[in-house]
Nucleic acid binder design. Structure first.
Lengths: 342, 342
DNA sequence: GTGAAAGCGCTAACAC
DNA sequence: GTGTTAGCGCTTTCAC
């Protein structure tokens, strides 16, 4: 391993000059700097981040905890986090908690000692967040909690958009297929449903249990949805929507003719299905990027202008990203027989 | 931050005793150990990995570079890498190279200084691998190269299985839709095609260009496939297969009645489509896990029994994981009109 | 069985 | 503008 010492010896300067030449070039004489840089390159010198981090009290690493990497939603958020972190000079430890609250807690604890801060995406653990968030820089994605900075999308509004869309198509009985019990996003969607119910009393809504946020979940829910008598269904996410569509097809229920289906998130699978899903879109890469921005801002504050808190981006109001309804082919006019008599 | 010093003071011992009590409990008197451990827990002491790593010359971190996290293939491999690394006590830096060879090279260089070793999954960069692999512990996934340890699936055999399946269904003209130019997997599939051609001279094979390994790629390829006169098509991966199916449907070509489609990888999207895809399966989590095992073995060697090389798992023959043909509904008998006259 | 002390590679005062 | 030096938190000889 090449160290500052090697570079120093080889270029005839002291180790501090080497350090400066690389980190603060303007504080070193041009010719010295050029020589040092040249030697460093020739020797293939790479600063040891553990060492510089140890000195600086930072590791240069961030941690990201997600419930399931194979869920395209989290894959996209991870991609966004990762890209933005690279721009801010951080590497990202990515951890898959396997939808397991206990494991999640354990992982968060473990990550804290080797990162400068954490992004917890859709955490399933409840109490653990408290502990971790207390004395470590943490940003939550899709969960709001006390004074912990958080970034999320406007799920409730997304539900409202979907209901308005369905109502305009003549649907008067809409089912919602719920996600994981511990999911805050699910709670937000249900809240959106309440708003919709209040605003459009002519639309009945029924909610159907809580299901795994995967294709199987949708398959499991399909029969309940049919039995509910709804003419349209809003799914917890795109995967659930796809499961619904698949199972409905098997039962001979045509989508959208017999039943309109709306997904959530507009992950890439939404357009894979036939018919392509009408779904509520959020910019997931941006969600991840925003989380990193908040986190990095919080890190800066800790070391910088301290607890003023006035224009501190780390404690600024929670970010809520806008949503957009992508209308595709899985929704259409309500079946005539189910239209209310006029 | 709680340090060894705090624990030492609080429990009335020296810092070295604290260190031992936690790392080598047997070398410390039971009561001393218990006291130290109790204090450490009470204070919430977490060893600083940067510091211990600095001393030990290891970071406890591995790096994983993938071309695209949103591709379910890499999401699954990442999940496997991550799970296994946790078991071996390593954290994983995950980096998305965005299918960009130059960025990939840059990221590899950057990661080297903060990891003990790297897993490069389906690298698109060519020369850079050489550099990185030369003096850093590296394991390649889906690429074989010189003496660098590598793990891959038996793609060529997968192609053979697919062709045999199609041949048995009466297909005599099979198209292959190729993947990225820099993809070694693509080359392996073409090699499998050569073997199939030799073994079954009655089956004609045509290859169609190179396409992006995504749904759009499949859409772009669909018309060429139809024009080729093939009655069956083998796609570079499941996403491409789905793109094919989608575009074919739009053109009124029924899958599988008019054209049989075979995917590759059996990612979760394979069963999302209608019809569910016949595809070549590999255990992707296992692929990732094996890569970590190889890497960790290589790390051990570096620090341990040195260059004996006889039973060294780090330099053992390349791992090739078996494949399996998952027959679903996207393949069926060749259209009668295209069957050879008897 | 335990403590003192050296040092991993680096940066940041502090001198000159 | 450059060199010397003191640690960051930890592990690991080496004494006792």
């Amino acid at each position: 391993m090449v160290t500052v010492r090697d570079v120093a010896r080889e270029s005839g300067v002291s180790i501090s000059t080497v350090s400066r030449a690389l980190a603060e070039p303007e504080r070193v004489a041009p010719e010295t700097r050029d020589r040092v840089v040249a030697v460093a390159n020739r020797l293939g010198y790479r600063p040891n981040r553990a060492a510089s981090g140890l000195r600086a009290g930072r590791t240069g690493a961030l941690g990201l905890v997600v419930p399931d990497l194979e869920n395209p939603y989290f894959a996209s958020v991870t991609k966004g986090v990762q890209a933005r972190a690279r721009q801010t000079g951080h590497a990202v430890f990515v951890v898959d908690a396997g939808e397991d609250p206990a494991l999640e807690t354990e992982l968060v604890t473990g990550l804290r000692s080797q990162t400068d801060g954490l992004v917890l995406c859709s955490p399933r653990a409840a109490e653990a967040d408290l502990d971790a968030a207390r004395d470590a820089p943490v940003v939550l994605v899709n969960l709001r909690h006390d004074g912990v900075p958080s970034v999320s999308s406007d799920d409730a509004h997304g539900v409202l958009l979907a209901v308005e869309h369905l109502r305009a198509l003549g649907h008067r009985r809409v089912a919602y297929v719920g996600g994981p019990d511990r999911s805050w996003s699910d709670a937000r969607r249900r809240a959106g449903l309440d708003v919709a119910r209040e605003r459009y009393p002519d639309v009945e809504t029924v909610t159907v249990g809580s299901f795994r946020p995967r294709v199987e979940g949708g398959r499991a829910a399909a029969d309940l949805v049919v039995a509910s008598g709804a003419t349209a269904v809003l799914a917890y996410n795109d995967l659930v929507a796809l499961g619904l569509v698949a199972r409905l097809r098997e039962r001979g229920v045509d989508v959208p003719r017999d039943l309109s289906v709306v997904g959530f998130d507009d992950t890439f699978v939404a357009t894979l299905a036939s018919p392509p899903l009408t779904t509520v879109r959020t910019d997931l890469a941006r969600l991840g990027a925003r989380a990193v921005d908040r986190l990095v801002a919080a890190l800066g504050t800790r070391r910088g202008a301290a607890a003023d808190g006035s224009h501190d981006p780390a404690t600024s109001p929670d970010d809520v990203l806008p949503v957009e309804l992508m209308v595709r082919d899985s929704t259409t006019l309500a079946p005539t027989r189910d239209l209310p008599a006029r």
